[in-house]
């Protein structure tokens, strides 16, 4: 339902503006407004997704507009999780504007054709496809959190090394906190990514006996998976953290962006919308 999404969008915009203002003015009251608006937006957003699903009987995660909308929804979910756990006041001002932007893009783009999903929804092992897409977009959202946390880490690390503290310094969470957020988000993202890849391969295999197609998107995703595997492995095995982990977090997210947008340009099996 377009109206529901537009209400959600308005709420998200209010939330984003208040989050940014609370970051600048360091006023907790503004943050509370942001969170209230966010809760309202999330409610409407969730309803909009559910209504779409029930009405069309098709899992609403296929078209570009749907993917952007879902990504925004997933980001709100992660934001809520991180805030509840770490009480990091700065994160909202980075994440919520992006949520608003994603949902705005989704609502502008919504009127496109719906030819493909029927085919997908009825074929062999069709139940695997929603798991494939949902897992992957949750992974992308988690990796965005890693990205934000890495940026926060590197900004502050730089200021600490240069011994010059700017405006941002006193407003960001401590290094230990952002590093931990990054570690947790990496684990969640990696789990989702793995699940998404397995689901996708199983689905493909069930349909035509081919699990791997050397499609650009598949190759990039495999690279992304390897990179985050390396990051996680080194975090646990060799105690990589801090600066090095943050740089890998940045690199990983760049790969994610390439997978999401770039694979389209290279053509192949995974081209939609």
């Amino acid at each position: 339902m377009k109206t529901l999404l537009l209400v959600a969008l308005s709420a998200y915009i209010v939330a984003a503006i208040h989050a940014v203002l609370s970051f600048i003015n360091r006023r907790r009251a503004l943050e509370r407004v942001a969170h209230a608006a966010l809760a309202v937006g999330f409610g409407f957003h969730t309803t909009a997704l559910a209504v779409d699903w029930l009405r069309d009987r098709i899992y609403p995660l296929f078209h570009r507009s749907e993917t952007l909308s879902f990504l925004g929804w997933a980001l709100v979910l992660f934001y809520a999780f991180v805030f509840r756990r770490y009480r990091t006041h700065a994160l909202g001002s980075f994440m919520l504007p992006l949520v608003a932007l994603l949902v705005l893009a989704a609502s502008v783009m919504q009127a496109d054709g719906r030819a493909m999903p029927q085919l997908l929804a009825t074929g062999e092992a069709a139940w695997l496809f929603p798991i494939h897409t949902t897992s992957l977009f949750l992974a992308y959202a988690a990796f965005f959190v890693v990205f934000i946390a890495s940026v926060m880490y590197l900004l502050q690390e730089r200021e600490l090394k240069l011994k010059h503290f700017g405006m941002v310094f006193h407003r960001l969470p401590s290094l230990a906190t952002v590093d931990e957020i990054s570690a947790v988000a990496t684990s969640i993202g990696f789990t989702c990514l793995t699940l998404g890849i397995i689901a996708g391969m199983s689905w493909s295999f069930a349909r035509d006996g081919r699990a791997w197609r050397n499609d650009p998107k598949e190759v990039l995703t495999a690279l992304t998976w390897l990179l985050y595997l390396l990051l996680l492995g080194q975090r646990y095995a060799a105690g990589w953290r801090g600066r090095r982990a943050a740089w890998i977090g940045l690199a990983g997210f760049t790969l994610v962006l390439c997978t999401f947008f770039g694979a389209r340009l290279m053509g192949g099996y995974h081209v939609f919308g």
Partner: peptide
């Protein structure tokens, strides 16, 4: 103060 920035607590 700096310790808190680096270690959180």
């Amino acid at each position: 103060e700096l310790g808190r920035k680096i270690f959180g607590s």
